[in-house]
Nucleic acid binder design. Structure first.
Lengths: 338, 338
DNA sequence: TTGTAAGCGTTATCAG
DNA sequence: CTGATAACGCTTACAA
């Protein structure tokens, strides 16, 4: 591996000129620059990332804190990761994945202080989140994916659960439904203060109440068997229910099975609308699910852009938060009630 | 942020002693070590990763090259990533994700030469793979997830497609099936020389031929609609088919729909067995799919361990390759033929 | 427009 | 067992 020394020698200039030719931080005459570039390409020069990081005190790396669960990564998260990594790279950053449990805030701060990352993307944010406090207090630049209850002075990108749920309810009500159930994420996530669970629950209650409709909502673990049970519970709460809104991919399939087992046809007897859904999931059922697709890619892109802004203009005004609505992807599981 | 200088001063020792107390690379007396550790914790000292990397010429980082597609990340890959990141961390390494298209071998080599990673995990390996040649030629330590046609001198972990397909065929034949179809990955992947597609095809042909059975195999894009068409094609090739082996998650659901549409019951009329399947996917259908689960977590762990071996003992004998068989997870879609 | 040189915070090689 | 000190390869004032 050749160093800047080698390049400088070969181009007949000083190391600093090579450095400036590379970074553009001060003007370099065209002919000099050409000689330097020629020397660089002849030698196959690659600036050493550590030397650069040590001298500039910047790593050009962004860390994505993702929940270290055994459950794997949902399609939406995968989209997010892929898009974030691509965006980061196109802006000269690397994206590191740090698998951390929810409570390891100090570890995160330490790694940033070691210089391993210039900033952090924080996933799976809860309404009250220790990590947010810790990172904020430590002065670490970070963007939340999701958001805490109070967001003053914080940067985030998130799904607009309020608008998404409202649109979903509107879609069903427009079709003529009046008796609608909501199948949410798990009680565990609810108890942990996981923001999407709480926000969606709240939004569903409000949207229904505003229309003078009763809101039947149940929590449900993220698997099909739990989905069957939850569907049973919903039908016990209102046997005349004609539509179910779900925000729980795995459980949705179980709910469909339960409907089928009871001789209820989808969508002729009961409509199913799945919100905040990963790409491709709708196509897995027959008829294909009507879904509202979570904007994972867009969130990834926007999260990285705002974090880079935070890193590069620490004194500029903070980036605008982004709230994205899931968009309706028509499928075959919503129809007017019988 | 405090530095080793600060720690040394506070403990009344030299920087080198602090360094050795930390690394254990040379003996340090117990009392000295205690003083150093005390000073470190009092100051909240975190060794700077860049200074360390620059001086030691090691990054303690592993890069995972993953295919930059829009399709997202399958459950198996997610499992792999999560497990690899965890294993890496528990051995003092970081796991970086580098999204690269299949042809960008030079970029990968450059990044490694910049010092961004000590070694590389290469996913989605093809039978003939330029990246493998390039990395090998450049002397970059790497472990393949999957393997090329020739693997002499290379390190890999992979699914044992041969044994997995054989076990799958055996399972069906033991149930009494004689007319079995195989629904493989896409023609695109086949043309690209994607190893699992080719190996599974070959293994299926051999397993059937050995039993004197006819092997009907079709390629199929990774979506349910293509799955329906592929199922149609299989039934045209052999209308009396009683079992289908699939290695294409999305398409499997389409195939099931097509069977249903033709009035064929699963498993009473036709059995379905899905191999190399992501966790949780089986539960999405009703009855739940009988699957052979891809060992994503285990592959991630083994891949990281062998790469670390390669990095840390460059002259030791190369790590044993691992070939793992997918294990059968009984579901409700295989039964004796009618 | 270019060159000089002082760091950046470790590791590792000398001595002692 | 411990201490000095020269790298490591780059960035960035400060000079010219």
């Amino acid at each position: 591996m050749s160093t800047m020394q080698d390049v400088a020698r070969r181009a007949g200039v000083s190391v600093s000129t090579v450095s400036y030719a590379l970074s553009g931080a001060r003007p370099v005459s065209a002919p000099t620059k050409a000689r330097v570039e020629q020397a660089m390409s002849e030698l196959g020069f690659r600036p050493n990332a550590f030397a650069r990081g040590l001298a500039s005190r910047r790593s050009r790396t962004i860390a994505l804190i993702f929940p270290a669960t055994e459950a794997g990564i949902s399609g939406t998260v995968a989209e997010f990761v892929s898009s974030a990594a691509g965006t980061a790279r196109s802006h000269g950053y690397h994206l590191v994945l740090w698998p951390f449990a929810a409570h390891e805030a100090e570890e995160i701060r330490d790694l940033v202080h070691q210089g391993m990352a210039d900033g952090v993307l924080l996933m799976e944010v809860c309404l009250q989140d220790d990590r947010v406090e810790a990172l904020h207090a430590a002065g670490v630049p970070f963007t939340m994916i999701g958001r805490t209850e109070h967001v003053e002075g914080l940067t985030f990108v998130d799904i607009d659960f309020d608008a998404t749920v409202r649109q979903a309810v509107a879609h069903l009500v427009d079709l003529g439904h009046r008796r609608i159930g909501f199948l949410n994420h798990s009680a565990t996530s609810h108890a942990a203060g996981y923001a999407p669970t709480l926000r969606a629950e709240r939004a569903f209650g409000e949207a229904m109440r505003e229309r003078g409709l009763e809101a039947h909502a149940v929590l449900c673990d993220e698997n099909p068997a739990a989905g069957r049970r939850a569907m049973t519970e919903l039908l016990e709460r209102d046997p005349a229910m004609t539509a179910v809104l779900t925000m729980n991919e795995m459980a949705t399939f179980g709910a469909a099975v339960e409907l089928q087992a009871r001789g209820l046809r989808v969508p002729a007897d009961v409509s199913v609308l799945s919100i905040a859904t990963s790409p491709g999931v709708g196509a897995l059922s027959n008829p294909p699910l009507t879904t509202m697709h979570a904007p994972g890619s867009e969130l990834g892109r926007l999260a990285v852009l705002s974090l880079i802004h935070l890193i590069e203009e620490p004194d500029g005004h903070p980036p605008e938060p982004s709230l994205l609505v899931c968009d309706l992807e028509p499928g075959g599981t919503t129809a007017p009630p019988p």
